[in-house]
């Protein structure tokens, strides 16, 4: 009985945290630079492939710590890609209408897909869950995989950390002030271009990190790039134009609704995410958390 009612909740929470981890970097870049980055999924995928290669090379018997370290390394490499992308693509397009950066990021998505095919080939790959995160907790008839609990915890941790940085540190206050008025921030002596570069690097780092961390849950193939991107755009906007708290809440709301929807109306799996998304946008067009940037 427990599984019947709480199962979809648990699984919905898990998906929510997957989407949230994917969407954090996207939210950051959109919140501050106003760039809707189609290529985010491409760099998420590159992070996942990098982590895959690292696991195959260095850690055939994956320990949890190696897995986390490898994900961080993948994040750093992707972050460096972000530095290049910022310099060569985002910065030249800064003064042009936002819409043009859309083509640029779409082009980057194509390039990253092509690059992954050229480097890693087109076969499917997968990685086992680290031994310590395998198995499951059982409560009554409710089965909760340890890996899923780990990802839920990681999502909450990631959210809390970002929230704390934004609300309680000088860096966070700086970020918020640049996000709401870059011109004024520039006048007050903030090096805005360098600041933007940092944001892009961090956003890409988060993409690569998420790619590594979610690797055991997903099949690796060059199609991975476009798997989460539409859902991530959804939570980003339903949350309220790129603020972390809104994205977090919207992820949970939409994914849990979808989870129950797909169990109850099993003839049309996956539709309820978008139904809920459309309904939310109609009811609260300003987003869950209105007004606040980041």
């Amino acid at each position: 009985m427990l599984a019947l009612f709480l199962g979809p909740l648990f699984n919905g929470l898990f998906t929510a945290m997957v989407v949230f981890l994917f969407a954090t970097g996207l939210t950051l870049v959109f919140g501050i630079l106003r760039i809707l980055n189609f290529a985010h999924g491409g760099f998420f995928m590159i992070g996942a492939y990098l982590a895959f290669s690292l696991v195959k090379t260095f850690a055939s018997d994956t320990s949890t710590i190696a897995y986390i370290l490898i994900s961080i390394v993948a994040g750093i490499v992707v972050g460096l890609c972000g530095l290049v992308v910022e310099r060569l693509v985002f910065r030249p397009l800064q003064h042009v209408d936002e819409a043009y950066s859309l083509i640029a990021t779409y082009a980057l998505l194509l390039i990253s897909e092509g690059a992954v095919k050229a480097i890693w080939g087109v076969s499917f790959h997968s990685i086992m869950t680290p031994a310590a995160l395998g198995g499951a907790l059982i409560a009554g008839d409710l089965v909760m995989p340890v890996f899923a609990i780990f990802i839920i915890g990681l999502g909450v941790l990631c959210y809390s950390l970002l929230e704390w940085i934004l609300q309680h540190t000088a860096t966070g206050k700086l970020m918020k002030s640049v996000a709401s008025d870059p011109w004024m921030a520039g006048m007050l002596g903030v090096n805005v271009p360098r600041f933007y570069a940092w944001i892009v690097v961090i956003g890409f780092f988060l993409a690569g990190l998420a790619g590594g961390l979610l690797l055991p849950n997903q099949t690796l193939s060059p199609n991975l790039a476009s798997v989460f991107v539409v859902q991530a755009f959804g939570v980003l906007i339903v949350g309220g134009m790129g603020n972390i708290r809104g994205t977090f809440l919207a992820s949970i709301l939409l994914c849990v609704i979808d989870s129950y929807g797909s169990v109850i109306f099993s003839e049309v799996p996956g539709v309820f995410f978008y139904v809920a998304m459309a309904a939310m946008l109609l009811m609260r067009p300003q987003g869950l958390i209105a007004g606040a940037r980041l």
Partner: peptide, 20 residues
């Protein structure tokens, strides 16, 4: 196997060279 990279690169160059 090269079409994505070629189309992507050309799009990118065009948008950088002619942002309008």
């Amino acid at each position: 196997g090269l079409s994505e990279i070629i189309i992507g690169s050309i799009l990118l160059v065009v948008v950088l060279a002619f942002p309008g």
